[in-house]
Design a protein around this nucleic acid. Sequence first.
DNA 1: CTGATTTCATATCGTTCGTTACGAAACGAT
DNA 2: ATCGTTTCGTAACGAACGATATGAAATCAG
Lengths: 205, 205
Amino acid sequence: MKAPRTQPRKTGRPLSFDREAALEKAMLAFWESGYETTSISDLTAAMGVTAPSIYTAFGDKKQLFLEAMRRYVGDAADLKKAFVLAPTAKEAVARMMEDAARLYTGDATPRGCLLASAAATGSKDAADVRDAAARERRVIRTIIIERIESDVESGLLPPDTKTSVLADTALAITHGMSILARDGADRNALIAIAQASLSGWPDHS
Amino acid sequence: MKAPRTQPRKTGRPLSFDREAALEKAMLAFWESGYETTSISDLTAAMGVTAPSIYTAFGDKKQLFLEAMRRYVGDAADLKKAFVLAPTAKEAVARMMEDAARLYTGDATPRGCLLASAAATGSKDAADVRDAAARERRVIRTIIIERIESDVESGLLPPDTKTSVLADTALAITHGMSILARDGADRNALIAIAQASLSGWPDHS
DNA sequence: CTGATTTCATATCGTTCGTTACGAAACGAT
DNA sequence: ATCGTTTCGTAACGAACGATATGAAATCAG
């Protein structure tokens, strides 16, 4: 498990392929078929790159997946900012769910959520990869909880608000939408679910 | 892919192991690690049965999983009956969710839902197994929708009730609870989510 | 132009995968 | 007791897995 090369070297033969584009294709392959159930052979076909080139550019399969997952989730600071800037916690969650509904039903991407499906299960050999995915999910959960707590402190939400229950319900809906999307639910159905699930929120207006 | 033997033969050497007990162990193994990511070697270890015996008793890996899945979901008629006998659709869904919360956090079983995780993703070779799991999920969905429609027709729910949205929201919550259970959420947290998600339901009382 | 460095394409490596031949062993039937 | 039938344990099958060894090709520094 050698360290992959993230920034280009000054000397030596240059990469013959677009590293970012190849990573994007790898992400889509993992998104479609999962971590363990996407083979190196699948990846070489999807990325248009030979196996040794994958290993020199990304390390090994595990590191490639982790990098693809980081690319999928994006920067957590962006999500954090969106939650802080939203007028209310409820509206922030609503936007997150609607973004998810769109993401899970995109025409150019696999259905559902990479974070919810690609490493949801697997062998013991891949336990660390599942843990990494769980860690990403936990980061999102923390961002949601903190925004809800903020609304409680500022009086936008009642003092007896069950912050973790509210956040976990939003997470459950979002993760559940991933499975429904894989089962064929269309975008409007997912958005309707998101809206319906928010009707139970305490409202400050 | 020979046909497995479901009922014992009158003649020939008898099975040296308990077929039902072995199937139970196989179910637990698939539940824990997923369909494709549970190897025959894993299954022989879990079931205490050699590979050739698995093949003579169950057919092949695919048939073994399908049989294990049928054992996991149980008889759809039982779920149907529970939904019909419940006083309201809302109460039926509440009980389903609380049963799920208990099932997903059992001490003697893996966390989460076999139906939601074991065949949620995978290679193209296993597409038919995922379809079979999706079919089981669809059966549950139909049962929920039919009970909601029944309440609308009998006046227990308002005529403009969005039956499919209500059902899909319940399914999303239940499936989402599976992922949260895998991430370590405890039983009370899941039950709280179930109850919170039902607060948005139109109530007839 | 030479040498150091890095990636290239080709051809594998050893391991594990799902699955099955094979002959011996254990049963019911006659 | 013998036969037909079925499962047994042992051993191994071809295929696919993740990952590399190898030497030629391509770049930069001097």
